[in-house]
């Protein structure tokens, strides 16, 4: 559905952020990109959505294609029209607008009022809590509600692919589970395709079909979520388990640091 072929991203003309990243996002499923801070996960999403260009970033090599159509070089507002919606890291709701106005703004590209109303109804059925808060200024919503609003806002443009950037950031575990369950339902019922960027590997690999691991602007590992979960490097560095699969004790950490196998 969405494929990145060997893309390279440079910021400010000199800083090489992504070096040859290839990702294949399958239709109607969740694909996840895992990695630590600064690995280049968010940059990958920004390269797809075209938001990159407003930050003086540039795709210097490779291509990004949505169902055969080239996306590189297109402005963010045009990429959205082609069917890609981004849910930003840290939620980034329009704080001074009410929840419902956020949704209206999210449906900006829809041709008529009726499709916006339908979109709002659809969002409210998946996130009933937003209906209660519809006339509240979104800057004062709770973190979980803001995350729901950010996802709902992205759905308003009826996207084919949703780019989800760290939806678990700063939220209570129970809320995270609730939101992830809704995302799974959206994928099943609305035939949505999701590219999920996460630091929380356990959660992400739990709902994804396929996963990638990024480090230093490169993809270092890829495979089916099932396979990744049993990979001993992933277990060690992302799931916090030791070889046997038991929870790791902090006492052992100092004794022996495992070397990452993918660093030649």
């Amino acid at each position: 559905m969405l494929s990145l072929n060997n893309i390279e991203v440079v910021y400010d003309g000199v800083i090489l952020v992504l070096r040859g990243v290839s990702v294949e996002v399958r239709e109607g499923a969740i694909t996840t990109i895992l990695g630590a801070n600064g690995a280049g996960k968010t940059t990958t999403l920004k390269a797809i959505s075209g938001v990159l260009y407003s930050e003086r970033g540039e795709i210097t090599k490779g291509s990004i294609e949505l169902a055969g159509q080239r996306l590189n070089g297109k402005r963010a507002s045009d990429v959205t029209r082609l069917g890609i919606a981004q849910v930003f890291e840290g939620r980034r709701v329009f704080e001074h607008l009410t929840a419902e106005e956020n949704l209206i703004a999210g449906g900006h590209i829809m041709p008529d009022i009726k499709s916006i109303r339908d979109g709002i109804d659809m969002v409210y059925t998946y996130f009933p809590r937003l209906r209660e808060r519809r006339h509240q200024q979104s800057g004062y919503l709770s973190g979980g509600e803001q995350q729901m609003l950010a996802i709902g806002r992205a759905l308003m443009s009826k996207p084919k692919v949703v780019l989800l950037d760290e939806p678990s950031l700063g939220l209570a575990p129970m809320l995270v589970e609730e939101i992830f369950a809704i995302v799974q339902r959206l994928v099943k019922q609305e035939k949505l395709t999701v590219l999920l960027v996460e630091q929380n590997a356990t959660l992400a690999l739990g709902i994804a079909e396929h996963g990638y691991v990024m480090e230093n602007g490169r993809i270092v590992l890829e495979g089916d979520a099932e396979k990744l979960r049993s990979n001993s490097d992933i277990k060690e560095f992302y799931l916090g388990l030791n070889e046997v699969g038991a929870r790791k004790s902090y006492r052992d950490v100092k004794h022996y640091r495992r070397r990452k196998r993918w660093l030649s």
Binding site: S49, S54, A105, H108, R153
Partner: peptide
């Protein structure tokens, strides 16, 4: 109006607004 809401969205956050398909 929808245009007015979009304009306020632009004022709130240009980058996010452009990702909503709004031509800033």
């Amino acid at each position: 109006s929808r245009m007015g809401v979009a304009m306020r969205a632009v004022a709130d956050n240009q980058q996010v607004a452009s990702a909503m398909g709004i031509n800033v």
